[in-house]
């Protein structure tokens, strides 16, 4: 190994793109499936309006509570609005809220978590606040925030952010505390690396796995919380279609028109599952040691 002889025969030829893709999928199956599902979901929300151009808000007295059929693939609701169009538009609202809330959570959660893990003086303040937020049951806290701020898309984002940022802070902080005295961190410091460099390059990557898991759980919960809030009438105000709002509206018709609830319920499950798969897949992929152990 040390003599450095590398015979040409031992250098593997670079596999073709398709072959490499297959290899990657085979070694990260959960991540691949999760990403495929998420891609499908995004394509669905982007492409369906082109294929089925029906206004989600148009009311039709003659076509109310129709079961799935040729004209309305997923049926209609009590006001005769096309369920498929509402699902698509609602999806874009739900995903937008979830993406915005998760992005905010990621940025602030990681920054605050790293700082509070590294500097005890800041930690006292940050941990007190984030711990006290964790005491409240999630939905109750979200309801309180929306009751105070009023229902709007932005306020739903804020509520989801406040709900999930403490978990990310705690995850990142725990990793920083676990590794801040580790030998490899001491070694990096002794090389002259600055606090920021040590935090960003040596410590934070150790936390990416658990943070990604938290964020993907946060993302799927954001969809759920948004749906829950809409269900309670605290989400994006009507007539904007949201998944939660659709389920809420379907409550009264569960016996006569079950499709009204099944379609949004299924798509919420699908979205949440895809993100959980991505979270687990990322965790496996980002830790080279767990990967090595698995092979």
């Amino acid at each position: 190994m040390i003599d450095g002889r590398v015979s040409l025969a031992s250098v593997p030829r670079r596999p073709a793109l398709g072959e490499r893709l297959l290899l990657w999928v085979a070694s990260n199956p959960m991540l691949a499936i999760g990403m495929a599902m998420l891609t499908l979901l995004v394509l669905f929300t982007l492409l369906t309006p082109l294929l089925v151009p029906i206004d989600p808000l148009s009311i039709s007295a003659t076509a109310k509570l129709q079961p799935p059929g040729w004209e309305h693939p997923l049926g209609t609701d009590e006001l005769g609005r096309d369920q498929l169009s509402r699902l698509v538009v609602g999806g874009s609202i739900s995903l937008r809220i979830a993406i915005a809330a998760t992005a905010l959570t990621a940025v602030f959660g990681v920054a605050l978590g790293m700082v509070s893990g590294q500097y005890p003086a800041i930690d006292i303040v940050v941990s007190q606040i984030s711990d006290s937020l964790l005491i409240f049951p999630g939905v109750v806290l979200a309801i309180m925030i929306l009751a105070a701020l009023g229902p709007s898309e932005l306020n739903v984002i804020i509520a989801v952010f406040v709900l999930y940022v403490p978990r990310v802070i705690r995850t990142v902080r725990a990793a920083v505390i676990e590794y801040r005295d580790a030998d490899f961190v001491q070694a990096a410091r002794s090389l002259g690396a600055s606090d920021l460099r040590v935090l960003a390059l040596h410590i934070f990557p150790r936390a990416i796995g658990p943070t990604m898991v938290q964020l993907s759980l946060g993302f799927s919960s954001a969809i759920l919380v948004e749906a829950g809030l809409s269900f309670l009438g605290l989400g994006a105000p009507p007539p904007a279609p949201t998944w939660g709002g659709m389920i809420s509206g379907a409550r009264e018709y569960i016996r006569t028109a079950p499709w009204m609830m099944i379609a949004p319920g299924a798509i919420i499950t699908f979205a949440v599952l895809s993100l959980n798969l991505i979270g687990d897949g990322l965790r496996d992929m980002l830790d080279p040691r767990s990967r090595a152990a698995g092979q």
Binding site: A182, D183, F184, A187, R206, D287, P288
Partner: peptide, 14 residues
Amino acid sequence: QMVFQDPYGSLTPH
């Protein structure tokens, strides 16, 4: 500069 005792722990694993 410094060389540490534990070659398993002193190299950043990722």
